[in-house]
Simulated assay, not measured.
Amino acid sequence: MAANLQVEDSKARPQHPIKSLLGTMDVRAYTMIAAVVLIWIFFGVLNETFFTARNLSNLFTQMSVTAILAIGMVLVIVAGHIDLSVGSIVGLTGGIAAILSNWLGLPVGVVLLCTLAAGFLLGLIQGWLVAYRAIPAFIVTLGGMMIFRGILLGVTNSTTISVSDPVFMALGNAYFSRIFGLILSTAAVAFIAVAILRKRSSRKAYGFDVSPFGVDITKLVIYGGAAFAFVLTMNNYKGIPFPIIFVMILALIFSYISNKTTFGRHVYAIGGNADAAKLSGINIKSRTMMVFVFSGLLSSIAAIVLTSRLTSATITAGEMYELDAIAACVIGGTSLMGGVGTIFGAIIGALVMTSLDNGMSLMGMESFWQYIVKGTILVIAVWLDISNKNRKAKKA
């Protein structure tokens, strides 16, 4: 009886606003945001060019390809698999886009559909081999990485194919107007406000504790301020780059898929405990195949952005991108053991990786240092993830 009264009293007692705010946060994600801030401050102090609107605009544009790949990679890793072929799919589908546009002179719409279809098909083939033929994903995608790169070399005769279609080139190089940016930031703030109010009303309806109203206002100010700061910074150069909007749209779509759909819940269940998922009636094979389909499809979207931005398809396009995508996911909190990971975290991880590349390039550091630093960070991130899981296991 006393225990029940104590529980009821703790529920009735209002929490301290700061504790309430911290309690609603994804600690890992906000730690990564803090890491981004520290990285930016570090490079900003060492090189004043880092914080210019032009450099930040270039940084976010560079981030877009890694972010798009990381969005697809999250679902693959959460399901307990890995995809080492995404970089080669980027190279091959980018080459296909350039061939269709330059050599065959097809309209942009046809080029885009064929490129997306190619990525979808490559993901489908690999997913079928993993799901229905029980070949380990590591082997299938490692083979795919070599096969797709070889096909690219063969179909392009190991030459660079330029792209001259102005509409296609605009996809990776154009900017939205400054007015559009302001409208977008205003809409983002309105969306966040509505989401917060709906969450409060939903928790009240089901009798759950609700955070103090001041905490939600603080969150709205922080998120809204970040949105307006981003837009104003981009507007100080040329406006919001097209590729960033693609990242935002894809992030919203796949966040919804992973969090609000049956498919997403099944993917997390499979990665958490495949045996339990099977016993609960989840079609593991079809879900597994679909995560590879999504990965291939997103790789082709990344290829379109990259080929458009570079105005050409090269035989080296996409090399090592699979490692950047995996690193972005792991740094953003996705567990290589499966069952844990978020789209938002992967995008923050991609921002960390790109910020390191951008900052070290501005400082004139040799390229080998970039590999050393990013590799070290990846190992540390995995080590922290494993240590955290071990601590939780001991407490349990």
Rank of each mutant, 00 (worst) to 15 (best):
H16P: 00
I377D: 06
G181N: 03
I135V: 15
N58R: 08
A117Q: 07
G119V: 10
I41G: 05
I68E: 00
I89Y: 00
A12E: 08
I245G: 07
T354D: 00
T61E: 06
L182T: 06
I240L: 14
G281M: 05
M169H: 08
S280Q: 13
N283V: 02
L56A: 04
P17W: 09
V247P: 01
V130W: 07
V379H: 11
V155C: 02
G144H: 04
V247H: 05
L75Q: 11
L153D: 06
A313Y: 06
E48I: 05
A327V: 10
V305G: 03
S255T: 14
S202I: 01
A131I: 11
T262R: 12
M63K: 06
G127V: 03
A193V: 02
I77S: 07
N173Y: 02
Y132I: 13
A134S: 15
M146V: 08
T93F: 02
G264P: 00
V340P: 01
A137T: 10
T66S: 10
I89K: 00
I161T: 15
I240R: 08
T49H: 08
G224W: 01
V373I: 12
G345M: 02
G296V: 09
G94Q: 07
T93W: 03
G87R: 10
Q126V: 03
V330C: 06
L306H: 05
A97L: 08
I245W: 09
L59P: 00
T186A: 12
R203E: 14
L38F: 15
G281E: 04
T288F: 01
I139D: 13
S361G: 07
Y175G: 11
M1H: 06
L113T: 11
G345I: 02
K11C: 01
M1Q: 12
N102M: 13
I343D: 09
N157D: 15
